[in-house]
Simulated scan of single mutants.
Amino acid sequence: MSHIEKAEKAQPTVAANPPPAGYGYNQHPQYYRTLGDPGPLGLYGFASTTFILSMYNVQARGVATPNVVVGMALFVGGLAQFVAGMWEFATRNTFAATAFTMYGGFWMSFATIFIPGSGVAASYTDATEFNSAVGIYLWTWFIVTFLLFVASLRRNMGLIVLFFFLTITFALLGAGKFSTAHAVALDKAGGALGIVTALVAFYVGTAEMLSESALSWFRLPLGQIPKGRID
């Protein structure tokens, strides 16, 4: 018997009646889990990190050096929020996917500035130049946040309020880096609004987690916007 004949006889035969879709050849059903809502994870990651940094910006308990926030910014505000953004893409929620992924990247890039080994802050010998560079960085995020605020206007009041306060927060913090006479006052004002923003994000995240599908005892209102037709 030739090798070709042996190979032909060794080939498995295909069943005349293939098993139905969703079943393996062993006839055991295959179950597929749908994705849970990644929104609360992203919102909690954003809220907790924003709250800590904003407390430092208002110099709560005399803390003015923000370096302790680096760990939170890398792994909670950064990594956790970035992953939530990737999962939002899988659920076809483009707005949340864009917001979470962008702010996850923001927190990781912001933390990098304060990591000594990164050399970012150490490369500036002039404090004024460093503040101006950080100011441009913050004003760029003001633009991003304002555009997300515009995109949130058709969603719910919780998100609208969140992005409204966050937009002003970035504007104040960016202006504080450009100003020498009012830097501390603007930083504290930005920190105060950042605390408000974080509390709103905590509320929105909790409201999304206490959903009807989660069989919660109660729900929190988000102020849904009526979806009218746009021609």
Rank of each mutant, 00 (worst) to 15 (best):
F89W: 13
A99G: 00
F110Y: 14
R61K: 06
A99N: 02
M72K: 00
A84C: 09
F100R: 04
G36V: 11
S109H: 04
V76Y: 15
Y103S: 03
G78K: 03
A111F: 08
M86V: 14
V63Q: 12
F51M: 14
F114C: 01
S54R: 03
T50D: 04
Q59P: 00
D37H: 04
Y44Q: 08
I115E: 08
G62A: 02
A64Q: 11
T49P: 12
V69G: 03
L53V: 15
S109A: 14
P66A: 03
A80E: 12
F110G: 00
S109K: 02
T94Q: 09
R61C: 08
G45D: 06
N67S: 13
T98C: 13
F106I: 04
G104S: 04
F46R: 09
A80C: 13
I115G: 05
G45L: 10
A60Q: 12
Y103N: 02
T98D: 07
G77Y: 08
P38A: 10
F100Y: 13
M102Q: 03
W107N: 02
G105W: 03
F100M: 11
F110I: 00
A84R: 02
V83A: 13
G71P: 01
F89R: 10
M86N: 09
S118Q: 02
I115H: 02
M86G: 12
P66W: 07
G71F: 06
T65Y: 13
N67M: 04
A97K: 05
L35K: 01
R61I: 11
F46K: 08
T91K: 15
A99W: 10
T98A: 14
F82Q: 02
Y56D: 04
A64S: 15
I115F: 05
F89E: 01
N67P: 00
S54M: 06
E88V: 00
I52V: 15
G42H: 09
M72Y: 15
L74Q: 08
G36C: 08
A80S: 14
P40T: 05
F51P: 06
P66Y: 05
S109Y: 03
P66T: 05
L41Q: 09
V63A: 06
A96W: 10
M108Y: 08
W87A: 07
G117F: 07
F82D: 01
P66E: 01
F95E: 03
A111V: 07
L79A: 15
F82N: 00
Y56V: 15
F114A: 02
V83G: 00
F114Y: 14
G117P: 01
G105Q: 04
T112P: 04
T65K: 12
L79Y: 12
S48D: 01
M102H: 01
P66F: 05
V68K: 02
A64G: 00
A60V: 07
L41H: 08
P40L: 08
A60E: 06
P38R: 09
A80R: 03
A64F: 11
R61Y: 14
G42V: 10
